[in-house]
Amino acid sequence: MRKVINIAALALLGLALSTANADEAAIRASMTKSMPAVKIDSVKPSEVKGLYEVVVGANIFYVSEDGKYLLQGRLVDVAARKDLTEAKLNGTRKLAIEKIGVANMIVFKPKVSKYTVTIFTDIDCGYCRKLHSEMDQYLAQGITIQYLFFPRSGKDTESYTKAVSVWCADDRNAALTAAKKDQKIPAKTCDNPIDEHMQLGADFDVKGTPMIISESGNIYPGYLPAKQLVEALESEKDPK
């Protein structure tokens, strides 16, 4: 009797997997046809029956099993009062930042690093300048700061040109510090990742700068003093 039940269970599992694979294929085909430029990273069933979770870069969409309907928004577990989408976005943000790579960032590192944050910055942003002027305080707290450029004025503007010049400088860290003090730096051009930074910022829905992202993928919009940032990062390790 048990053997019959096991065979039946395996048959049902096989049917479920087959259906899931067919749904995934339908979703990929539908999205590729309607949005050929979109690169789908993964498709898998969401917590809601008949709705699939589609990861595209740092974004998450929800698509019907036939691929005809797409939802963009947050999936919330009402009973648990938990934003399920945000929890998963943390993971996609981490992967997206890793994909950019430290070699394509400007990094300020303390002697002993306890924490690492990635910050979208604009050279001409007032609070970005305030944060940078307190760099010694962040380093004293053991915080490594990885900068990505997000000139809010857009491409081919003065802020964008400054970002390119900083990246192309012989000493990027010194050039960034000088630029944030409103000191004139030599205008330079070279191969640079600024456009890639800006695209990632758009994917992360950056509304303002600075925008701080922790190693866990959590977002802290705006300026945070060093001690307050450490408290936030520590709370991630020991959530209450």
Rank of each mutant, 00 (worst) to 15 (best):
4 V>D: 15
7 I>H: 11
9 A>M: 11
15 L>H: 11
17 L>H: 05
17 L>P: 00
18 S>W: 12
19 T>E: 15
19 T>C: 06
21 N>C: 02
23 D>G: 01
25 A>E: 15
26 A>C: 01
27 I>F: 00
29 A>R: 12
33 K>S: 14
33 K>A: 14
36 P>T: 04
38 V>Y: 10
39 K>F: 01
43 V>G: 05
43 V>R: 06
44 K>P: 08
44 K>S: 13
45 P>H: 06
52 Y>W: 13
54 V>A: 13
56 V>Y: 06
57 G>F: 01
58 A>N: 12
58 A>W: 08
59 N>L: 06
60 I>K: 07
67 G>H: 05
69 Y>N: 13
70 L>F: 10
70 L>S: 12
71 L>A: 15
73 G>P: 02
74 R>Q: 13
75 L>A: 07
77 D>Q: 10
78 V>W: 07
78 V>F: 11
78 V>L: 13
83 D>F: 01
85 T>H: 12
85 T>S: 10
91 G>H: 09
94 K>W: 00
100 I>M: 14
100 I>F: 04
101 G>L: 06
101 G>W: 03
102 V>H: 05
103 A>N: 14
103 A>W: 03
103 A>T: 08
105 M>F: 01
108 F>Y: 13
113 S>Q: 15
113 S>N: 09
114 K>R: 14
117 V>G: 13
117 V>W: 08
117 V>D: 15
118 T>E: 14
119 I>L: 13
121 T>K: 07
122 D>T: 06
123 I>A: 12
124 D>V: 05
124 D>T: 12
128 C>I: 02
128 C>S: 09
130 K>W: 00
136 D>W: 00
139 L>C: 07
141 Q>C: 03
142 G>V: 02
145 I>M: 15
146 Q>V: 01
148 L>D: 04
148 L>V: 03
149 F>Y: 08
149 F>W: 04
151 P>L: 04
155 K>W: 00
155 K>A: 13
156 D>E: 13
156 D>S: 11
157 T>K: 05
157 T>R: 05
157 T>D: 12
158 E>L: 02
158 E>H: 12
163 A>S: 15
165 S>D: 03
166 V>F: 07
166 V>W: 06
172 R>L: 03
176 L>I: 02
180 K>R: 12
181 K>A: 15
183 Q>L: 13
185 I>T: 07
186 P>N: 09
186 P>Y: 08
186 P>L: 09
187 A>H: 07
189 T>F: 04
191 D>R: 09
192 N>M: 02
194 I>G: 08
195 D>K: 00
198 M>H: 06
201 G>Y: 07
201 G>N: 09
202 A>F: 02
203 D>H: 01
204 F>I: 03
206 V>E: 11
208 G>T: 02
210 P>D: 09
211 M>T: 14
211 M>A: 10
211 M>W: 01
214 S>R: 09
220 Y>N: 09
226 A>F: 00
226 A>Q: 10
226 A>M: 05
227 K>V: 06
233 L>E: 08
233 L>H: 12
235 S>D: 09
237 K>E: 14
240 K>P: 11
